[in-house]
Design a protein around this nucleic acid. Sequence first.
DNA 1: GAGTGGATTTCGCAT
DNA 2: ATGCGAAGTCCACTC
Lengths: 259, 259
Amino acid sequence: MSERQPTEYYSNPSHVNAAKTITDALNQVRTLIVVGECTIKYQGRASSELGSGERIIFIKEDGSFLVHRAWDSQPVNWQPPGCIFQTKSTKRGVLLKAIRKKPRESIEILFSKVFIILVLNLRDEAEFIMFGSEEDMQRAVLAKPELIEEGFKPILKEKVVDQGFVDVYGVDNQGRILAIELKRRKAQVQDVVQLLKYLEDIKRKSAGKPVRGMLAAPSISKEASVMIQTKGLEFKTLSPKTCAEVLKLTSSKKITEFI
Amino acid sequence: MSERQPTEYYSNPSHVNAAKTITDALNQVRTLIVVGECTIKYQGRASSELGSGERIIFIKEDGSFLVHRAWDSQPVNWQPPGCIFQTKSTKRGVLLKAIRKKPRESIEILFSKVFIILVLNLRDEAEFIMFGSEEDMQRAVLAKPELIEEGFKPILKEKVVDQGFVDVYGVDNQGRILAIELKRRKAQVQDVVQLLKYLEDIKRKSAGKPVRGMLAAPSISKEASVMIQTKGLEFKTLSPKTCAEVLKLTSSKKITEFI
DNA sequence: GAGTGGATTTCGCAT
DNA sequence: ATGCGAAGTCCACTC
């Protein structure tokens, strides 16, 4: 009987057994879930302390480390992939250290009780596919420029200006330069500032030729809208969902041809 | 025997039992961990698909929802606190929906196999304490202005300028205005731009009086450093760790007195 | 409720 | 490695 065993479960282990089980799981590069009562200290880019309480910790195959409480979608403490672990059983409980170098950081967890250890061996080959990013919007506009307006001809994706890029850059049906800043979310003041900065560079380099600046986003904040008016810029409603649908139709995630 | 039972464990439940167990746990507002083979679809601000694979899902007491794979510190799909759940057993497996309104979003998980269900009732009253935030740096400078330079006298915390704030604002030992932008991480070009914008407002309002602009951060990028030089600004090395230590000494998290 | 800026942001890409 | 900007950013705070 050689069927793979994706899960192992340990309930209320002694400190010694908990430490051993965790160490073994880490050596075998398993995904690990530990539930128990613990205190936590973090030292690194910042520092933090958390007194005793019951929490869930996660260690993943890539060395990611997460501490979750019973609420909040974000972990209360964590360490990015690639960190190194030390486990031992001490008089005060099970000590688990997660250490990262560069920057030097460490999380120390002391379990006074371990309720549960889950050792997982997960099979997961599927590819994650996302639609509707800002990059997708860019691709959609390049594939179908009339999303912006009739007669618009993109020239370059991401034209370089001093410090930074314009998302889409082209010429309108009257030959004027049209620089477009895309946002996948509601446009804010900061986005208008960004566009203005780019336009400055473009105008400086285009020797007085007429230049239009456009912000394209699903919606715009009141403040940003006022600023658009004041500065003689334009706003075009364009949602990531629309763009995602255009991409599905043209079925091209490739943009090399446009560059 | 009335001892609280912090954990319940169910192994390889039938689809019907899994759906029932999950529903019950949600009704009792328990933290829930489910491990199983599933496919996932997300529709909302963006959209995503993930084919069949073995994953871990988390539901917390506040209605946070997380889907984790065996790698990556970030969840592959998630829903913020406050979302609503629907569970049912279908012919194809256990269906779990997490729905959020405003913005309207949904995640649908279809489990073809459920390996494990953990129902947790976690007790956690401890307060989380963090040191070394940008706000802590501000407090430290106000409590001990010589962190910036001898003779510096802060005037106001967060002096209001058009659009935004200066982190610290005061007068140096020669009576010149000194506006300081604090960063807890390596300073970037964008931070210099920010400071310049603030300085513009301050200069406009200070009728030609001399104004110094300073960026205080643990380090600075080369580009930002060049810009600092070019624009006649200053850079001061100041780390969040130093500031945290100062705060511990003065033992004052309060800043009201300075405002 | 909308708007704004920090975050132990994280993450990916380009230099 | 460093620098820079997007993110389904999240999050807290202000207006």
